[in-house]
Design a protein around this nucleic acid. Sequence first.
DNA 1: CGACGGGACGC
DNA 2: CGACGGGACGC
Length: 515
Amino acid sequence: MRFNTCVILQPKASSVAEQFRGKVRSSGEVGLHSNRKPINEPQTHRVAERKAKMEDSSSKHIPENLDDPPNSRLFVVTSRCITEDELRDSFSRFGGIQGVWLVKDKQTKEPKGVSYVKFAKSSQACLAMEEMHGKVLLEGTKPIKVFIAQSRSSTRHRDVEDEELTRIFVMIPKTFTEEDLKNTFREFGDIEYCVIIRNKFTGESKGLGYVRYYKPSQAAHAIENCDKSYRAILAEPRSKNNSSEDYSAGGTRGGEYSSADSANQYPFTTPDQGSYAMLDLRQSDFTRSLMMSTRAVVTQEQIFALFDLIPGMEYCELHRDSYGMSKGHALIRYNNLGSAVYAKEKLNGFEYPPGNRLQVSFYDDGESPAGRMATQFVTAQIISSVWNGASSSQMIKPAGYPSVLSVPRVQTDVNLPPLKKLAPSDSKTKERLFVVFNPSTLPHDVLEDVFCRFGSLIEVHLVPGRKVGYMKYADKQCADEAMAVLHGRIVNGVKMKVMLADPPREESHKRPRTY
DNA sequence: CGACGGGACGC
DNA sequence: CGACGGGACGC
């Protein structure tokens, strides 16, 4: 036992956050410091299988990786007369000490009253900080101050605040509520609050969240021990926010749409939702009205039924041109812009009756600046959202709607089964297909349209910048059938190789618990 | 040939 | 205020 120093622990506040970190003014210097070499801590290295070479132990480390893992090193301000052994003894009860180092003056070799204590884990360092800060180690000396050491590469000279050590940033299922988040992470410590990052307009979770603990050791414990699939890391402080967060067309910033909730309308166009309330276009007849032209014989009832497939139609009238029956045009109006844009997207070029392509355009032909803006805006949302899973399929009428409307978008040399619903996005993937496109990739929505038809499709994933993608299926047989039917086929002029995907890179993660 | 792996909060 | 050592793997 090298416990020959009487360590006096003065009971004080236990939370670092509450404690006063007063200045230490060490006056006299008692030239008592240990000159012995650093002692090898029983590290958990498994270097055993090396050539027998460096067996003479006591020559190596002070830990090489000073900041590995992050926040595992303490910066300790003490009396100048503290020894390395005394420090080590004081902190060893928190476990995992990898090194203790007293800073000394370069010239005089006198200790400067500051030292570093390296732990194996951040949680150990944090706990030691919380417990030891403010303690009096040597009778008659000032209480010590204990901080997480700045990383060696950092040039900052500020103390690391608890604020930076108590909030973690995690990836969670989109279905998680704040309650779920709290229930998941409270096993690691007392939680001050949980926040889920949501789409500001729709409230839809982005699958990311923050958990604020009361103590750094709790946050560290969570990061070290929570399921790896949460990818927990320390959250960057909010204050020094990245200066450039632009909301404009930011490329991969998709997903800014809502899920359906109200019965007969597209949620992103409900009048009381602010998406583009600023463009006061919702009540404009022009931007909600479509013109349909046809050369074939159609009846008022047929056209009505067709455009009524899109929710929100409030007016539809067919006008026959002279000498009836050979030509006609119809005026259709919806009660919201989104429905009108969607109807145009889906029905323009649609063959009805078969062999006859309908022409559908905006009544104002999209020529007004406001109309163009609105069209672009809503179209962008629709393209990425319509076929995007269970929530959006709610707004599609169950009978016939999808299969009828998707016809003009996809041309292929194979007879496709009708559209099927996507599997819920949190379904477990049972099989993945790897698809190579030649000469170029296909749009996401087209692929979803094609690959969903065998059932249980969870998600289409296109690899950015590559001509390949992955199709995730919740059912193996569905995936196999898709592969059998689609391999080597041509969709919209693009030939596809459809293969089983290699297993994803091993990451030994358990799946997130589902409560 | 043709391979995935991610992340940020209205002041 | 109170901040960064000693010593050198071996293809």
